[in-house]
């Protein structure tokens, strides 16, 4: 009965891993800087989702905190780099 949930979990994990490979290829290929930032953001989201998926499997609440922190750092990092492309500095006086 729980075989179906187990299967779905592994399927979703495989999807996220393939998605991370796609994003990593785009990160390496570019061609422009904003492409790489977009790819990094996608990488973060996919990583967060796979951590959540693992958390479902293990059933420990700590995975939720990890996912929240990854989402937080992903947002701050991508925004800082996008701001740098836009204005040439991150924190303006």
């Amino acid at each position: 009965m729980n075989g179906i949930l187990d299967w779905a979990m592994h399927f979703a994990l495989a999807c996220f891993a393939t998605g991370m490979v796609c994003a990593a290829l785009r990160l390496l290929r570019g061609p422009s800087a904003q492409d790489r930032i977009l790819a990094l953001d996608t990488l973060y989201i996919n990583g967060m989702l796979s951590i959540l998926c693992l958390g479902i499997g293990v059933g420990a609440a700590i995975y939720f905190d990890i996912a929240l922190l990854i989402a937080l750092f992903g947002f701050v990092g991508s925004t800082a780099m996008a701001k740098f492309l836009l204005r040439g500095e991150v924190i303006e006086p």
Partner: peptide, 22 residues
Amino acid sequence: ALPASLLLVTGGLLALLGSIGL
């Protein structure tokens, strides 16, 4: 288990689609 599996598969496919589009 059934709706959760369905949601997981849908979410995985959507994330994969987004990355493929990228």
